[in-house]
Simulated assay, not measured.
Amino acid sequence: MRQRVRWWSAGAGVAIVLAGLAVRSATDDGPPSTAAGASAPPSMSASVSSSPPSPPAVPACAGAVGRLSLGERAGQLLMVGTPVDRPRGLRAAVRRHHLGGVFLAGRSKRPAAALRADIAALQGDAAMPLLVALDQEGGSVQTLKGPDFPLIPSARRLGAGPKAVLRDTVRDNAGRLARVGVSVNLAPVADTVPAGLGEGNPPIGAFHREYGSDPGGVAEDVRTVVPASQGAGVLTILKHFPGLGRVRANTDTSTRAVDRTATVGDAYLEPFVAGIDAGSAGVMISSASYPRLDPEAIAAFSRPIVTGLLRDRFGYTGLIMSDDLGAAQAARAVPVGQRAVRFVRAGGDLVLTIRPQDAGPMTAALIAQARANPAFAARVDDAALHVLEAKQRAGLIRC
């Protein structure tokens, strides 16, 4: 029987032992910013030596993955939503499905102390510390408000102002989140909305979520946001790769979100490259369609986009998570469990669903596919490794 010792927290520290694994622990808008220039995607290079090749480095958390059961590994690949005003309702699912993370959904003006207590209760039910995430972008998309969480200007407004204001705003917000136990902010938005489209872009422009209409300017803002947030203790997730700024439908409410312009050399990819270069812990994959990148599947289910473009072409080695695959209309044609399987098979690591009832079908489908297919089982192990590495980077575990 696997030994499991409960982990505990004191202040900002967290400790756990798992089978010998040591763990520690507004919206006024100005004109969009403009900057010139677009950098090319980073290139991969290889060195040649006459000496025998050295053994490959073993990732720090690989041994930890090997000590998890298949069910535990599958559970680590899920981030499941729970109402921010009632997060303790997810406690049973955290225990039963070994969830990797929770997403605090909705809007709240609760005091920081109350939220901190609820997050601690969720963590107390987890054998492995949870990534705790929310949407705290600012403007219309701000989960936490009230006396302890001041209103944050929209990205469009911040992008039009001084970089120092952007940096200080993000840093202050991240510090407030870290103090209540939030370890991941699903931000920044790295999508560029063309000036001629603006609010005609339902998911981003309509809510002023973009930093600007020029990819070079957006890239500079993303370069500012990533270290400001992560330096204050909250991991960033670049979204929504490979870009939602040109679509004319919202993937949450429609199956017709299509970007027919995006290619592997698209200038609108520059902000994502900038965020990767800045060290963002994660990238979120959109659920829109990109026919010139993959005519067969939405981005979340596309191996050419997730693995071919993001992993191979851009050399990204961090955490890849999905946009919501629970309630979103863009994925409705696929059975719930298979949504998780298809995302992981495409190269994704962490499946986001805002519906708690999806945890069971998704974990069951991942386990069944891993048992039936050795290649998929290896993919599950690789995805779990990326999740654990993100937890280590958040200070939740030490491998």
Rank of each mutant, 00 (worst) to 15 (best):
L144P: 12
G245L: 10
T34F: 11
R311C: 08
H97C: 00
G13L: 10
G71F: 01
R371M: 11
F376Q: 04
V387Q: 10
A64E: 01
A365D: 05
A120Q: 13
R371N: 10
G265Y: 05
V165W: 10
R95Q: 14
A121Q: 12
Q123D: 13
V264N: 05
P153M: 08
K163G: 07
M321E: 13
R393A: 14
V80G: 05
T261C: 00
G198V: 09
D381Y: 06
C399Q: 09
A178Y: 00
D294G: 09
V351D: 12
C399S: 09
R24V: 00
S49V: 01
L238H: 13
Y316M: 11
A359T: 02
S39F: 07
G212T: 01
K145L: 14
E137I: 00
G139K: 02
P242Y: 02
A331L: 03
I152N: 04
A370D: 07
R86S: 14
L99F: 07
G395C: 02
A328Y: 03
F103P: 01
T27A: 12
R223I: 01
A384D: 12
A74Y: 01
D381C: 07
L134E: 08
P111A: 11
R179I: 00
K109G: 15
G212F: 03
G348W: 09
A160L: 03
S183C: 05
V48M: 14
K109P: 03
G279Q: 12
F301L: 04
V193P: 00
D221M: 11
H98R: 09
P150L: 10
A113S: 15
L366A: 06
F241P: 11
A232Y: 03
R2K: 09
A164T: 15
R260S: 09
Q136C: 05
L70D: 01
T363S: 15
I397H: 11
A164P: 04
T255E: 14
V102H: 00
V258I: 15
V170W: 00
P356S: 11
N201Q: 08
